Computed example of a mutant assay.
Amino acid sequence: MSPTPAPAKRPPGGPVLQKDVTRALETAFFEELAAVGYGKLSIEAVARRAGTGKAAVYRRWPSKQAMTAELASQAALAYVRAPDTGNLHDDIAQFVRDTMAALSHPLASRIVPDLLAETARNEELASALLAGIRTPRRENAAGMLRLAVGRGELPADTDLELGLDFLVSPTYWRLAVIRTPISDDYVERLTAKIIAALKA
């Protein structure tokens, strides 16, 4: 009969964070943020929605702002990644579709406008979100355009900074501001216009 294995030792450095609790808190955070907005969001409400105590939140994030910056950044970077299909047209068309899907998500459609409004009042949150979302996403998309330059699909002197604005702004305006649905035909027309602008 084999001896009973010794119980697993807890790693040094504090309590082990259970993944299922973390996932529950992440889900609760986005649901609560969509329901009440950043201004009324509270650690207590997130914990209550997740079925945990406040201590579970504070073991993972030191503040509401830190939780928002980390989770919003993770979600934004996961939803829209610059594709690499091998040609510029398909890359941009997929990027537009991914952006459209992200902005059309029921929670995102309420969260994104609220956070943008909040950043106008909260410089610390604005800085955190710019560092966690805008900078890495724009660098990611810039890589897509650089590949097109390398393939000879775009001129070597392409204005990447302006091109990055073209990639996202029309879709955001359409879905988040004037809230008008986008069809596949619109995606194709927009893709053609973006490419034409990049080559101009």
Rank of each mutant, 00 (worst) to 15 (best):
K199F: 03
L130A: 15
A196G: 12
E153C: 02
E44Q: 12
L116D: 11
D98P: 05
V16S: 12
E161Q: 09
S127M: 12
A120C: 11
T171W: 03
A78Y: 10
L145F: 01
Y58G: 06
L115F: 03
G53V: 06
M67R: 04
L116R: 15
R23V: 09
D98F: 08
S73I: 00
P136E: 05
E32H: 05
S73D: 05
Q18T: 05
V57M: 08
L129C: 10
I178P: 05
V36F: 04
A197V: 09
P62K: 07
D184T: 02
A128C: 10
K9A: 15
V149C: 04
M144H: 01
N140Q: 12
L103E: 04
T135F: 15
P62D: 12
L25F: 04
L17T: 00
G13Y: 07
D165R: 14
P170H: 05
L147R: 14
D84F: 07
H105W: 07
F30G: 03
A75F: 14
Y79Q: 15
Y79C: 15
R59D: 08
Q94I: 01
M144A: 02
V80C: 02
L77K: 08
A131V: 05
D98S: 14
Y186D: 15
G163S: 04
V36W: 05
L17I: 07
A78Q: 09
V16E: 14
V16G: 10
E44M: 08
T171R: 03
L71V: 05
V46I: 11
A47D: 06
R134S: 14
R151M: 01
Y38R: 07
S2A: 13
E139Q: 13
I43C: 06
H105D: 15
G13C: 11
R151C: 02
I182M: 13
D84P: 01
I194F: 08
E70I: 07
G152D: 01
T52H: 10
G150M: 02
E161C: 03
L88F: 00
A197N: 11
T68E: 04
P155H: 00
F29E: 03
L147Y: 03
G152Q: 03
E44V: 10
R60H: 08
A28H: 05
A66Q: 12
E161T: 04
R121D: 11
A24V: 06
D84T: 03
L17Y: 09
E153G: 01
I182A: 09
V96T: 04
A102C: 10
Q74A: 10
A120R: 15
I111Y: 04
R174N: 09
A28Q: 04
A50F: 06
D91P: 03
R121K: 13
I133G: 08
E139F: 13
T99Y: 00
S42V: 02
A55G: 13
Y38D: 00
R81T: 11
A34M: 03
W173N: 14
E31C: 05
E124L: 12
N122R: 09
A50L: 06
R48S: 09
L103N: 01
A101K: 09
E31I: 04
N87F: 00
P155L: 06
A148I: 02
E188N: 12
N87P: 01
F30M: 06
F29W: 03
A82Y: 01
